[in-house]
Computed example of a mutant assay.
Amino acid sequence: MLDAALVMLCLVILAALLFDYINGFHDTANAIATCVSTRALSVKAAIVMAAVLNFAGAMISTKVAGTIGKGIVDSSNVTQMVVFAGIVGAIVWNLITWYYGLPSSSSHAIIGGIVGSVFAHAGLGALKWAGLKKIVLALLISPVLGTIVGFIFMLIIYRIFGNKSPGGLNKNFRRLQVLSAAFMAFSHGTADAQKSMGVITLALVSYGFLKTFVVPWEVMVACAAAMALGTAAGGWRIIKTVGSDFVKLQPVHGFCVETASAGVILGASAMGMPTSTTHVITSTILGVGLSKRLNAVNWNVAKRIIVAWILTIPASALMAYLTYQVMSPLLGK
């Protein structure tokens, strides 16, 4: 006779790894869009590099995982069904935005999903509002910081290399951009794979397999591998939106975008703050574009991106809420 709770735990783990895989190909653009659009790397070479460094970055720390697993809701108010419904809500929204080529935030999606499923299970009182406020504040500040850092970094580059010929400058920065893309891919791993690590560990605590919230190394490896495999699958729809439709980039711009974005993401990850890598890199691209001129930015694409950003948390929360209401009578709470 199968243990129903164990079966539910297995479903949660599989769903979380699927989310990580989807996050990998959904957010491939974060790491490689700019170096592909500037032809610093071929699509295949960029995806392989991003997959390897995403895995490496994911194995470095679990601070973000702890913030996701402990900062939104107390584990006493979490069941396997709550975690499962939250993940499903995030997955559905990620697939919708991937289909339409919109670089929405997987971080926002998983947070919205958990909020929606917890609300369906135990009401708003079960949420940790102080921790949730801290997480949302970090997610809101990071794109603003990305825009500012990208803008200032690009101005510094202009000041230092302003007397160089565009051809020679871009040739040199095309080489440097391989390093900056690697830096960005590594930082992406430190941030995004840890969301699923936190969710799976939360499920293990809820089941009773773990007594305290400590991410097991097996969970780290599984989540890192799932994201790396997803990254290897690629995500050309979003790569095109971020890398070429939003702002036309030259290698010098791509280097600036990737270096500035990676710096913001790694700094936040070191403090355990779950930034949206999607928001950071698109906002940094915006900052670099604004350093050129206002009409260097495709504002129609910018509007589509902003709409996706605004909708992500409520949309994924709603989908998780509905998933819980539909599935809990069938699978149990």
Rank of each mutant, 00 (worst) to 15 (best):
A4S: 04
A5N: 09
C10G: 15
V12P: 10
L18Y: 01
L18Q: 01
F19I: 03
N23R: 08
F25H: 07
H26E: 02
D27H: 05
T28L: 12
I32N: 10
C35G: 09
S37V: 01
T38M: 01
R39E: 15
S42I: 03
V43T: 14
A50G: 13
V52A: 15
L53A: 02
F55V: 03
M59R: 02
I60Q: 09
I60F: 13
S61Y: 07
K63E: 11
V64K: 00
G66I: 08
K70I: 12
G71Y: 05
N77Y: 15
V78R: 06
V78E: 07
T79Y: 09
T79F: 12
Q80T: 12
Q80W: 08
V82Q: 07
G86F: 07
I87D: 01
G89Y: 06
A90H: 05
L95D: 02
W98D: 00
S105G: 00
S105K: 00
S106G: 03
S106T: 04
H108I: 06
A109V: 07
G113E: 01
I114G: 10
V115P: 08
F119Q: 08
H121F: 14
L127E: 12
W129R: 13
K133T: 15
I135C: 03
L137G: 05
A138R: 02
I141Q: 03
L145N: 04
L145I: 15
G146K: 04
G150F: 02
M154T: 09
L155P: 00
Y158V: 00
G162T: 00
K164R: 14
K164V: 12
P166N: 08
G167I: 15
G168Y: 06
G168I: 04
L169H: 06
K171T: 14
R174F: 00
L176S: 09
Q177Y: 10
V178W: 11
A181F: 12
A185P: 07
T190N: 13
A193L: 13
A193I: 14
Q194W: 09
K195T: 12
M197K: 03
V199D: 02
V199N: 02
I200K: 05
A203W: 06
A203D: 06
A203G: 10
V205C: 07
T212P: 05
E218A: 15
V221C: 12
V221N: 11
A225Q: 01
A225V: 15
A225F: 14
M227A: 04
A228G: 01
L229H: 08
I239F: 03
I239P: 00
K240D: 13
T241Y: 00
T241I: 02
T241D: 04
V242L: 13
D245R: 13
F246D: 04
Q250R: 12
F255P: 00
F255I: 00
C256N: 11
E258R: 05
T259M: 15
T259E: 04
S261T: 14
A262C: 05
G263H: 01
V264W: 04
V264A: 03
I265C: 03
M271T: 07
G272M: 04
P274F: 01
P274Q: 02
S276T: 02
H279W: 06
T282M: 11
G287R: 04
V288N: 09
L290R: 13
S291H: 10
L294I: 14
N298W: 11
N298C: 11
W299S: 12
I306H: 13
I306P: 05
A308R: 01
W309Q: 05
L311T: 12
T312Y: 03
I313K: 06
I313Y: 07
A315T: 14
Y321L: 11
M327G: 11
K333Q: 09
